[in-house]
Amino acid sequence: MREESAQRQRISHKLKLCPKQYLTVTEGALDGALKTKESADETEGV
């Protein structure tokens, strides 16, 4: 298993500290980012 980058470790730690009421917002932001990446990959033919 590859070692997590320092940035991923920081984000993981922040998620653990995040109040439950804000997790929906955080998840939405991540979903949007992933969807944007998927769209870009499809456009580029990846």
Results as ranks from 00 to 15, higher is better:
residue 5 S to C: 04
residue 39 S to K: 12
residue 37 K to N: 05
residue 4 E to R: 09
residue 2 R to V: 13
residue 11 I to K: 07
residue 7 Q to T: 02
residue 38 E to F: 01
residue 7 Q to V: 06
residue 24 T to G: 13
residue 25 V to L: 13
residue 46 V to K: 08
residue 6 A to I: 14
residue 31 D to N: 11
residue 4 E to F: 12
residue 10 R to W: 08
residue 10 R to V: 03
residue 27 E to S: 01
residue 15 L to M: 15
residue 37 K to D: 09
residue 27 E to W: 00
residue 5 S to Y: 05
residue 1 M to G: 10
residue 30 L to S: 06
residue 16 K to C: 01
residue 9 Q to G: 02
residue 33 A to S: 08
residue 40 A to E: 10
residue 36 T to S: 11
residue 39 S to M: 13
residue 29 A to H: 04
residue 31 D to Y: 07
residue 29 A to P: 01
residue 11 I to C: 05
residue 26 T to R: 05
residue 35 K to E: 10
residue 25 V to D: 14
residue 24 T to V: 10
residue 13 H to C: 03
residue 38 E to C: 02
residue 36 T to I: 07
residue 5 S to R: 04
residue 23 L to P: 01
residue 36 T to H: 07
residue 21 Q to P: 01
residue 25 V to M: 12
residue 17 L to G: 03
residue 9 Q to T: 14
residue 32 G to N: 07
residue 18 C to P: 06
residue 40 A to Y: 14
residue 32 G to W: 00
residue 8 R to W: 09
residue 31 D to S: 10
residue 14 K to F: 06
residue 39 S to P: 00
residue 13 H to A: 14
residue 30 L to H: 04
residue 15 L to F: 09
residue 46 V to W: 06
residue 34 L to E: 14
residue 21 Q to F: 06
residue 4 E to S: 05
residue 38 E to P: 00
residue 38 E to M: 04
residue 35 K to Q: 08
residue 33 A to E: 09
residue 35 K to S: 07
residue 9 Q to V: 15
residue 16 K to E: 14
residue 24 T to C: 11
residue 19 P to Y: 00
residue 29 A to M: 10
residue 2 R to F: 08
residue 32 G to I: 01
residue 26 T to I: 15
residue 1 M to K: 04
residue 13 H to D: 12
residue 17 L to D: 12
residue 5 S to K: 05
residue 35 K to N: 04
residue 31 D to P: 00
residue 43 T to I: 10
residue 4 E to D: 11
residue 39 S to G: 08
residue 18 C to A: 14
residue 1 M to V: 05
residue 28 G to Q: 11
residue 46 V to T: 06
residue 26 T to Q: 10
residue 3 E to L: 13
residue 46 V to G: 03
residue 43 T to F: 10
residue 6 A to T: 12
residue 7 Q to I: 02
residue 12 S to F: 03
residue 20 K to M: 04
residue 41 D to W: 12
residue 23 L to M: 13
residue 45 G to A: 05
residue 27 E to A: 01
residue 31 D to H: 06
residue 13 H to P: 01
residue 35 K to T: 06
residue 41 D to S: 08
residue 18 C to R: 13
residue 42 E to H: 03
residue 44 E to K: 03
residue 43 T to M: 09
residue 19 P to F: 00
residue 14 K to M: 13
residue 24 T to D: 15
residue 6 A to L: 12
residue 11 I to G: 00
residue 34 L to S: 06
residue 12 S to K: 12
residue 5 S to I: 02
residue 3 E to Y: 07
residue 10 R to N: 08
residue 3 E to A: 11
residue 13 H to V: 06
residue 23 L to W: 07
residue 20 K to L: 03
residue 8 R to N: 07
residue 46 V to Y: 11
residue 40 A to L: 15
residue 8 R to F: 09
residue 16 K to R: 12
residue 25 V to W: 08
residue 14 K to V: 02
residue 22 Y to P: 00
residue 7 Q to H: 02
residue 27 E to T: 00
residue 18 C to H: 04
